[in-house]
């Protein structure tokens, strides 16, 4: 549905986007993740036809954005970083205007405007001037504007910026509900957003694609083998010895809790689930099993990992990090 092919954008000597390529399939939600200044907005502006790329091309719904801009734009809804509102216009007037320039048929304008206001829950401010709205409402009017002509492709630049937690959840639900009929690209630098809404993630840093994958796979890729974190109320060395004997366990690292419960990290052979065995090994010896959880890296950790290490960033794939040390999770990820 969206194809970005070797897109490069230079502003004079500054390269904002450097040879980016990715595809978005029909009905998919793609998260566009990266620190501020990574080139997210520039890439989105190229896809929406706001600016042409220096090199490469973007294809939306089968139309080259540069060659057939009108056709491509007819199928694209775009919410820029700052919602493009006219402060003196009332919300309903504004949406009517946008519907007209987006090419909504005259007979459908009113129905579309009403429908979209309903969907984005802004009907209560229809008579207010855009300039007087709160940040949350502005953002939603911006989203409404992008939905007006029922575009196949939605490009949302930080759709939840400036919303309160309740509005964020509502907006995410709305975006999820829109997927399927629409193909969505949304950018953010808030990580939970991506793992909660997106099926696939493109991580971009300094204008380059660092990784493209599902949030789950990304997590798995960074972590070479499955690791478990345990907190056991028992004597450290004995616990370590007992766990090493559990079949399928390939390594045990102990971090003695100075008299209190001990923390142990256990790695298993290629993704083998050893949780039951670990639990029974601890319990059968009469120790207290306080905690047992898989040590999957959060997206946040992967993100920091990918965007702070230039050596791995240069590769399209993801190099596995050093095996994390127990109790040092924080240090490893922020290194």
């Amino acid at each position: 549905m969206i194809e970005v092919q070797h897109v490069t954008k230079r502003y004079g000597p500054v390269t904002a986007v450097d040879d980016i390529s990715f595809r978005v399939e029909r009905g998919e939600i793609l998260g566009f993740l990266g620190p501020n200044g990574a080139g997210k907005t520039t890439t989105m502006r190229i896809i929406t036809g706001y600016m042409p790329p220096t090199e490469g091309r973007a294809i939306v719904a089968g139309f080259d954005v540069l060659e057939q801009p009108i056709e491509a734009k007819r199928r694209t809804g775009y919410l820029p970083e700052t919602p493009p509102l006219y402060p003196d216009m009332r919300v309903s007037e504004y949406l009517t205007f946008v519907a007209k320039v987006k090419g909504v048929a005259r007979s459908q304008v009113k129905a579309r405007v009403d429908g979209v206001m309903e969907r984005t829950r802004i009907a209560d401010v229809a008579r207010r001037q855009c300039g007087q709205l709160s940040k949350g409402y502005r953002q939603r009017v911006g989203l409404a504007q992008a939905l007006l002509h029922d575009p196949e492709v939605l490009i949302l630049d930080e759709p939840t910026a400036g919303l309160d937690p309740k509005q964020i959840i509502e907006t995410r639900q709305l975006i999820k509900a829109l997927a399927g009929d629409h193909t969505i690209v949304l950018s953010t630098h808030i990580l939970p957003e991506v793992s909660q809404t997106c099926q696939r993630v493109v991580i971009i840093n300094k204008g380059r694609v660092v990784a493209v994958d599902t949030p789950e796979n990304l997590t798995a890729r960074v972590r070479g083998s499955e690791a478990m974190y345990l907190q056991v109320d028992g004597p450290g060395p004995d616990v370590s010895a007992a766990l090493t004997q559990v079949p399928g366990v390939s390594g045990v690292t102990l971090n003695d809790g100075a008299g209190g419960p001990v923390s142990v990290e256990v790695t298993s052979e290629d993704g083998r689930d050893v949780r039951r065995e670990l639990a029974s090994a601890v319990v059968s010896r009469g120790w207290g099993l306080l905690e047992l959880r898989p040590m999957r890296l959060s997206l946040e950790e992967i993100f920091l990992h990918l965007t702070t290490e230039d050596t791995t960033a240069a590769e399209p794939g993801v190099a596995p990090p050093e095996p994390p040390q127990p109790g040092q999770e924080e240090e490893t990820t922020h290194a």
Partner: peptide
């Protein structure tokens, strides 16, 4: 105000 983004990404010449 950034509204130029709306105009330039709408199907208009």
């Amino acid at each position: 105000s950034g509204t130029i983004e709306l105009l330039l990404t709408s199907p208009l010449t």
